[in-house]
C-alpha cells in the first residue's frame, strides 16, 4: 500500500491502469474511503484510463491529524498525488466534500487539468447546508459514526437502493464505521469553520467542467450546482435522474460511463460546455438529452422560465 508524505503525515493512495494513459483522479466524500471507487476503477481502466484514488487526511488508511485538518492540506495532498501521474492529461472528479476539494484544486492550479467533474458539490454554504452540516456534526458528537451514517443513508440514497438492504444495514455501515474515527470525521467537518465561499473564484477555472447533480439531491440541491454552472466558464450541468446525493454509490456504472464519455469528448475536442443543462440517461451508454427548452431546471415541477 503506497503512501505520499505531506509534512509528517502519510496519505494512502492507489494508482491503477496503464501508466501513460489519461488519468482520472477521484476524491472521496467526507465519510468515504478509496475502496468505494472500485467499480469506477474497473470501468475506467477498461476504457483505457489510469485511475488514482486516495484517502484524504483524516480518512481511511491515511493519517488522521489529531486536532486540525485544513482544506488547504487536502488540496496539497491532491497536488502531491497528481504529481505522481506524470504528464498525461488529468481529469479530476470528486463527490460532495471531495467535489469541493477538487474545485479548490482547479481554482489554485488553473492550467493543470484536462477536465473537472464536481459531483454533488458546492462552492458556498447555503443556510440549509450550513444548518444541515451543523446538525450532522452534532449527530456525530452525540451518537458517533454509526448515528451519522444513520442520518446520511436515508438522506442520500433512494428507496430502491435502501429497500433490499433494510434487513442488513449494519453490514452496509460496518466498513465505514470501522475505518472512520469520530475525532477525525469531526476535524473534517470542522474544516468548514473558517470556510470562505469559492463562488467569486469559479470564473478562474479554465478546465472543461461537467457538473453532476442528482435529481433529488437533498443535501446539496440544484441551486448549489447552479452556482457552479453559472460561475465556471466552460461548464455544463448534467442532472442524474432518480438520484440522490450519493449517486456515485448508487449509480456507479452510469456515473463511471459519464466520466469516461466526458473525458473522451474533451480529448477528442468534441466537448462544448456552453453552460448547458442536460439530463443523463437512466443506463450507461444512453443518450444525454437537453433539458427541455424554456423550462426552469431549478424547479421540481415543470415551470416555464421567467422571461429575462
Amino acid at each position: 500500500m503506497p503512501f505520499l508524505a505531506h509534512g509528517s503525515h502519510r496519505i494512502r493512495y492507489e494508482l491503477d491502469g496503464p501508466k501513460d494513459a489519461p488519468a482520472y483522479v477521484l476524491v472521496n466524500g467526507l465519510t468515504q474511503y478509496s475502496e468505494l471507487w472500485a467499480a469506477y476503477r474497473d470501468t475506467l481502466i477498461g476504457k483505457g484510463f489510469r485511475v488514482a484514488t486516495f484517502d484524504l487526511l483524516g480518512q481511511g488508511a491515511s493519517d488522521k491529524p489529531e486536532l486540525f485538518i485544513s482544506q488547504d492540506d487536502q488540496v496539497e495532498a491532491l497536488r502531491l498525488l497528481i504529481g505522481e501521474l506524470g504528464n498525461a492529461p488529468i481529469f479530476l472528479s470528486g463527490i460532495s466534500f471531495g467535489g469541493l476539494i477538487a474545485l479548490r484544486y482547479a481554482i489554485e492550479h488553473r492550467d493543470g487539468l484536462a477536465g473537472l467533474v464536481p459531483m454533488s458539490a458546492f462552492a458556498e454554504l447555503s443556510p440549509q447546508l450550513l444548518l444541515l452540516g451543523n446538525a450532522l456534526r452534532t449527530g456525530l458528537v452525540l451518537g458517533g459514526t454509526s448515528y451519522l451514517q444513520d442520518l446520511l443513508l436515508p438522506m442520500n440514497l433512494s428507496d430502491s437502493w435502501l429497500k433490499p438492504l433494510l434487513g442488513n444495514l449494519d453490514a452496509v455501515k460496518r466498513q465505514g464505521w470501522l475505518i472512520n474515527d469520530v475525532y477525525a470525521l469531526q476535524n473534517l467537518m470542522e474544516s468548514f469553520l473558517d470556510f470562505r465561499p469559492l463562488t467569486p473564484l469559479l470564473p478562474s477555472i479554465k478546465a472543461p467542467t461537467m457538473i453532476l447533480n442528482g435529481e433529488f439531491d437533498f443535501l446539496t440541491p440544484r441551486s448549489l450546482h447552479e452556482t457552479l454552472r453559472l460561475g465556471i466558464p466552460d461548464s455544463s450541468l448534467v442532472i442524474i435522474p432518480n438520484a440522490y446525493h450519493a449517486f456515485t454509490l448508487e449509480k456507479a456504472a452510469l456515473t463511471a460511463d459519464l466520466l469516461a464519455r466526458f473525458a473522451e469528448d474533451v480529448l477528442a475536442k468534441r466537448w462544448q460546455g456552453n453552460k448547458a443543462v442536460w439530463i443523463a440517461p437512466d443506463e450507461p451508454g444512453g443518450a444525454l438529452i437537453p433539458f427541455p427548452e424554456g423550462y426552469d431546471h431549478l424547479r421540481a415541477i415543470p415551470v416555464l422560465k421567467a422571461a429575462s
Binding site: 486536532l67 456525530l140 458528537v141 452525540l142 458517533g144 459514526t145 469520530v182 475525532y183
Partner: peptide, 11 residues
Amino acid sequence: FESSRLIQAQI
C-alpha cells in the same frame, strides 16, 4: 460510544 462524547471536552 462514551469515548466519542468524552473526547469533546478535550477537543
